[in-house]
Design a protein around this nucleic acid. Structure first.
Lengths: 339, 339
DNA sequence: TTGAAAGCGCTAACAA
DNA sequence: TTGTTAGCGCTTTCAA
C-alpha cells in the first residue's frame, strides 16, 4: 500500500503542497473554498501526515518522554494512565521508559529521549538530572524529586511532610508508645522527607524513636516488609506500632507478623503510605496515608503542556495534598472501618 | 546548545558524512583507522544521531507501538515491563497506548502509530484489527486475541483452554457440586475461551452449571466481583463454589461474601485467574490459575523482533502454559497453603 | 491568498 | 575504501 503524502493531497485538491500544509496546521490565510477542497482530498486519500518528517522539519517531535523507576508499581502505572490521557488529548504521544531504579538505565533513557527529539519529559523519582543528561533545552517536569526550579523545570509531588506527620499522629493516637519505622529511602529518595517529618512529629508528641528502631529493608515491596518484620522479631525489638513508608512494605510486614502470631491491631498497629487498591483488601485492611497519582499526573501533564507551549515563563512547584485513610490496622477500640 | 550533526562529526574526523553514517550503522567497508577517528569525533562532540531524520530516510522509525486496554492492570504493566526491556536491548523504544477498552480510542492509537511510522506493533486484547486500521505493512503481534496468522501477524497468549479446565477440576476437587461462574468476557473477549472450557470440563465431570449461574458483572475489578456476589446472594442462588475469570473479580467476590457472613472456603470455595500479587495476600489467600505476563511479553518481543528483521517468513502462534496455584480458598480439609 | 523552492539530518546509490 | 549527491516528507520563508 503506497503511502500518501502531501504531494498526493496537493494534486488531488489542485493546490500546492504549501497550501495543504497551511490548512493542516491552520497556518497563514487561505480561502474557505481551498480549505474545503484540501480537507476533502485528505479524507478521500486517507492521508496521515508523516510525523517523522514533521518532527525533523520542526526540530522536535510531538512526543513526550515519561521515565519511571517501575511501571508495574501501581503508583506509577496510575500516574502514567492519567498523563497519557491528558497528553493524547493535546495531540502528544508518550514514550515510556522503565529504569528499574538504575542510574545507568536512566542515563540511557535520557539519551534515547534526546535522540528522539522529544518536546518534553516527565521524570518520576529521578536519580539523574534530566537536563544535564539530555543536553537540550527540553522542558521537564519532575515528580517526587526535589529539584531547582528553572524556566524549563517544574516539580510536582505529594506533601510528604504532611504525610509523615499524619502517620506519626495516627500511630500515637492508636496508643503506640514504642514506634518502629520501616524506611523506603533506599529505592525512593523522596521518602527521606517522610522519614524526617515522621520522626520530628513523634519527638514533638514526646514519643521516642530509637535509632535501632529504624529498619531499611533492601526492597520496598511485600518481600521487603516481610524481611523487615522478620528482622524486628529476630532482634527482639520492643515495638507496638509501625510506620511503613509504602503500603506494600506494610502489607508484607503485617503478613509476616500474622505468621508469627502477632496480632494487628491488637498487639501492633500499622500505618502505610500510598493507599494502593490492595490496602483496602488486606488482612486487616490497612490504615494509610493516601496520595493520588491521578492528581499528580494531571498536574504534571498540565504543567508540561504549558511549558511546551511556552506559556509558562518560570518553572512551577506543586505540592499535592495527602490524607489519612483510617482502617482496621490502627483501630484498637473495635471501631468500624471505612468502606 | 547547538545540535551536533553528522556534518560536524565528519568535519571533526576529517571524513565525509557518508563515512560517518557507515561507521555508525556498520554498513559497508572502512579502515580501522577511519573507524577509530570517527568514533573519537563522536565521543568528543557528544554526537547523537537524530532519530527523526533517520526514520524519515529509512521510511520507518526504531519505535514499537504497544497497545493495551489498561496499563494499571497488573497483567499489562508486568507485560509491558518485559517487552520494554527486551526491545530496548535491541535498540528499539516503545510507545505505549492505553485504550480503556474503547474501540474508538483503539482506532486513534493505531492512527497515531501509523503516523509515527513505527516498525512494529504489539497489541493486547485488541478489539480492532491493527492492520486494517493502520493500512501499512507493519508487523504485529497480538496478545490474547485469536487472530488469523499471516506473514506479518503473530499471536501469543495463555492456554486458556487448559486454564478453564484447571479451574473446573479444582472446584470439583474442593467438593463443589453447585458451581457459579463470574465472567470477564465483557471486558476481555479472550476469556470466552476460559468460560467454554470451564463449562465443558464441568459437564465432563458430571457437574451441572445452570444458565442462571453465570454472572457477567459490568466491570472486572474488585467492584465487579463485589457486585456479582451481591447479585448472587440477592437472587438467592444456591452455590458452593465459584470460578471468577480474573483474580480481582475473585477478591471482590470473596470480600463481599465475608461481609455477608459466608465463609471461604468452608461454605464456598473460590478459584481465580491470573495470580496477581494480591492473590497471595488476600483473605483468604486465593487459589488461582497462574498466567505469566513476563513469559508472554518475552515471547511477544522476541517474535516481533524476528518479524521486524525479516527473519520470520510466516506468522507464529504461541500458546503459553498456565498452572494451578492452590491456596486456602479451595482448601476445605485444613491443608496448609503454599508460600 | 497562493506557489516555488530551500532545507531539516540522515542514508544509500553511484562514482571514483 | 571513501566521497558526492539525491531525496525521504514536511514546513516555511520569499515572491507573486
Amino acid at each position: 500500500m503506497a503511502r500518501v503524502t502531501v504531494k498526493d493531497v496537493a494534486r488531488e485538491a489542485g493546490v500546492s503542497v504549501a497550501t495543504v500544509s497551511r490548512v493542516i496546521n491552520q497556518n497563514g490565510r487561505f480561502s474557505a473554498d481551498t480549505e474545503r477542497r484540501v480537507r476533502q482530498a485528505i479524507e478521500r486519500l486517507g492521508y496521515q501526515p508523516n510525523q517523522l518528517a514533521r518532527g525533523l522539519r520542526q526540530q522536535r517531535a510531538d512526543l513526550v518522554g515519561v521515565v519511571v523507576p517501575n511501571i508495574s508499581n501501581e503508583f506509577f502505572s496510575r500516574l502514567i494512565m492519567t498523563v497519557q490521557q491528558r497528553l493524547f488529548d493535546a495531540g502528544l504521544s508518550i514514550m515510556i521508559f522503565n529504569t528499574n531504579h538504575s542510574l545507568d538505565m536512566e542515563r540511557q533513557c535520557y539519551a534515547s529521549l534526546a535522540a528522539q527529539r522529544v518536546c518534553g519529559v516527565i521524570s518520576a523519582n529521578a536519580l539523574e538530572d534530566v537536563r544535564a543528561a539530555m543536553r537540550h533545552d527540553v522542558p521537564v517536569v519532575y515528580i517526587d524529586r526535589p529539584a531547582e526550579l528553572a524556566p524549563h523545570v517544574s516539580v510536582v509531588m505529594s506533601d510528604n511532610v504532611a504525610g509523615g506527620r499524619l502517620a506519626a499522629r495516627e500511630l500515637v493516637r492508636s496508643g503506640c508508645t514504642r514506634p518502629l519505622l520501616v524506611s523506603a529511602t533506599a529505592h525512593f529518595p523522596i521518602t527521606e522527607v517522610r522519614t524526617k517529618s515522621f520522626a520530628d512529629t513523634l519527638a514533638e508528641l514526646g514519643v521516642f524513636l530509637p535509632d535501632d528502631h529504624v529498619l531499611t529493608p533492601p526492597a520496598t515491596d511485600f518481600a521487603g516488609g516481610h524481611a523487615a518484620a522478620e528482622e524486628a522479631l529476630a532482634r527482639g525489638l520492643d515495638f507496638d506500632g509501625v510506620f511503613c513508608e509504602t503500603d506494600r512494605l506494610a502489607i508484607g510486614f503485617m503478613n509476616e507478623l500474622g505468621e508469627k502470631g502477632v496480632r494487628v491491631p491488637a498487639d501492633v498497629t500499622v500505618v502505610g503510605f500510598d493507599d494502593v487498591l490492595l490496602a483496602r483488601f488486606g488482612r486487616p485492611p490497612l490504615t494509610t496515608v493516601r496520595q493520588s497519582p491521578e492528581r499528580i499526573g494531571e498536574l504534571a501533564a498540565y504543567t508540561l503542556l504549558q511549558m511546551v507551549r511556552g506559556e509558562l515563563a518560570e518553572g512551577r512547584r506543586e505540592l499535592v495534598p495527602v490524607e489519612l485513610v483510617r482502617r482496621e490496622s490502627t483501630m484498637r477500640g473495635g471501631v468500624v472501618a471505612d468502606s
